[in-house]
Amino acid sequence: MNKIVEKEYFSENVVKLVVEAPLIAKSRKAGHFVIVRSGEKGERIPLTIAQADAEKGTITLVIQAVGKSTKKICALNVGDYLSDVVGPLGQATHIEKVGTVLCCGGGVGVAPLLPIVEAFKKAGNRVVVILAARTKDLIILEEQMRANADEVIIMTDDGSYGKKGLVTNGAEEVIQREKVDMCVTIGPAIMMKFVSLLTKKYEIPTVVSLNTIMVDGTGMCGACRITVGGKTKFVCVDGPEFDAHQVDFDEMLMRLSSYKEME
């Protein structure tokens, strides 16, 4: 049982929860995720860790209410408990000094991007962040990003905040303006697909962090399998980060819809 100690609404459907999980807070690194379960009949779902405070023994999760389980978790309040939080899972992000890193985040994908931005900055890179959303209200963690990145560019589909356009418009502008050595992108699968296509065109090495359907999260079930470079990989143990240019996004998009009709 893990107590919720802080809750903040980023928007109507996006919630930040700070949860007690001292062992995970101590051992997690950028890129790691946890499996969370709420209630005796609850489903096990993967959530990437946005932040952690080892001293306080807490981790921060950002959740978008989309399905039955995420809605249930978003409805929890301070003082409530999650039945289970287990992790940290997956491989940590490989952080090194490469030069300029372009980090593209969309929707709640911005949350797991934050520790990666922090880590790349700490390793001595120039970090340019693009935050993208449909509209102004859905832009999250802007302040924290500004505190860690060299530059933050905001893109909204409707132009209600920052520049009007898609994440790829912003990314292309940066790529044409300066030399980008590496790109990291986290967000909806369709967004990652198009960022990946763009950076492939410019031959910029690109990393994606994937959030697929999982049950155990430790390699046991294979629900999270995707095709990378023609080979089947398990997101939970081989990932969650992969070479974006090798990922079969269409298959992943299809597999994400496995249980849609049942909800």
């Binding site: 062992l23 051992s27 289970d84 287990v86 992790g87 940290p88 899972l89 430790t218």
Partner: peptide, 9 residues
């Protein structure tokens, strides 16, 4: 429960 040796500890 919920403790993965090699990960959590």
């Amino acid at each position: 429960a919920d403790c993965i040796v090699g990960k959590t500890i």
